[in-house]
Structures are given as structure tokens and as C-alpha cells.
Design a binder for these strands. Structure first.
Lengths: 117, 117
DNA sequence: TACAAATATACCGAAAACCATATATTAAAG
DNA sequence: CTTTAATATATGGTTTTCGGTATATTTGTA
């Protein structure tokens, strides 16, 4: 994967995309409805930004029945991984990132389908 | 300085700005004409992008006679510094970053005014 | 086959980013 | 005080991005 720095940074320059990536990084795998609930955004909004991340190769997706699970792409270049790490550390405990994690944890009908089929 | 992640990433998402920052990071201090020559861009183009970086607090400037020297802002948050470090390492030896450094080194009338008055 | 849930895409107008060019500002020198 | 070099800003137009809403697709189930 040949990821241009400016392309990575453009992807990280949007709140929704950055919040999703930070969530995925610490949670491993999340489906669209979980990300939608965590961020409090509309479903098409989240879905479209996930599609952008997917087209750039930043995330990978896996369908399991009705749900599509997203994760940080396992082949993400090391330097990009470290950029994400630094960012996650920098925003740790800060809004809106902290409330995203809290919303996720308290999600009522969180799908319990197999995560690693 | 309270630097929002998305603001930093938006700044890094432009070729001219990223190339200037990478140059400033490894050179310490450069004036506008040096950055203009190194990147091969038009002077107003470089100047405007430097102004954006300045307004965001990513660079500091110092006037010395006719020249204005820019540097990575000394109060840049650690995490942002590390993001820049990772990026610089990732692009090391790659175009157009490598040619920028080469262009700078071979600049004919490079101003020799005091850099640390 | 019909229906419902989860997700994806299409469409649209508003806002922002971008670049090239022209012009203004600042400071040194004569 | 005029000129020149370095830098900054303004202007206009094109392109991109963004968010909201409507709609389409996919999959499981009755």
C-alpha cells in the first residue's frame, strides 16, 4: 500500500473520520450501527465517511450477516499507525472522544454477533 | 496552545505546507525565498501557506531586515512534534521532499544574513 | 414472496480550499 | 525621497468537501 502523507492527513482532518478511527483502534472491530451510536451521527453520514476510509485503505471491512464490521486496516503502514497512536494518546480523556467511548459502552441493543467468525 | 487534532491534520493535508514544515524541521530556520526556491512554487503561494501555518501556531517567524525567517514553533505540543517526526521519517528520501532539500542546498544566492541575531 | 433491519449510495446546495495573478507593504540602499 | 528586493495580502474563479435527506442494496426471516 502506497499511502501519501497528505492523503492520510486529509482523512484525519475530519471529526467523524478521526473519531471512528480512534474508536476502531482501541476497540478492534465495530459495526456501523455501533459507530453511529457512539458518535451520535446519522447512519448515512458515518457510512459515507467509512467508505472514504475504506477507499483510502485505512480500514478493512467484514460482513457478518446484516452487520458490517470495520477495523483499522491490518496492512496500515507503520508510520501511519504511529501517527494514529500519538493522536489517540493526545486526545485520551478529551471530548468528544471520551464520550464516544462512553456512548459505545452504554449502547443498549449492541449486536452480539460473532466478532471473529 | 490548544491545538485540535483535526486542525493540525488539515494543515498537514496540503503539499506545500507539509513540504515547508518538513524542511523547517530539518533545517531549523528558513526564509521565504529559500522555501520558495526549494519547493519551486510561486512566492505568494508559499507566503500564504506560511501565513496559515502561523495563524494556527505551527510556525513562528522572525524578521531580519528584508528577510522573514520561519521555524517550527518552539511551543508546538509534543504529540504534534512526534507526528511531524514520524512523517519526516516516512518521506525521507522520497520525492518531492528529497528534491526540496537538494534544491535548497544548491540555491545560488542564498541569503547569508545572521540566522540567530 | 413479502417484509424488516443494517448498510450503502445518490443527490443537492452551502461552505471551504485551492491556485494564479495582481497589488500592497515593509525595509534597506542610494 | 526614489528605487529595489523581500514579503504579504487581496481578488476572482474553479474545484472539493461537507452535511442532510431520500433512496437503493443486501441479508435474514416469516
Amino acid at each position: 500500500m502506497n499511502l501519501k502523507p497528505t492523503d492520510l492527513f486529509a482523512a484525519l482532518a475530519n471529526d467523524t473520520r478521526l473519531r471512528c478511527l480512534v474508536l476502531l483502534r482501541e476497540q478492534g472491530e465495530l459495526c456501523v450501527c455501533e459507530l453511529t451510536h457512539a458518535t451520535g451521527s446519522a447512519q448515512p453520514h458515518v457510512s459515507r465517511h467509512l467508505a472514504q476510509l475504506r477507499e483510502l485503505g485505512l480500514v478493512a471491512d467484514r460482513r457478518a450477516g446484516l452487520w458490517v464490521y470495520y477495523r483499522v486496516h491490518p496492512a496500515l503502514p507503520d508510520w501511519a499507525c504511529r501517527v494514529l497512536d500519538e493522536t489517540a494518546a493526545a486526545v485520551h480523556g478529551q471530548a468528544p472522544f471520551s464520550s464516544d467511548a462512553a456512548n459505545l459502552a452504554s449502547m443498549p441493543g449492541r449486536p452480539s454477533a460473532p466478532r471473529c467468525a
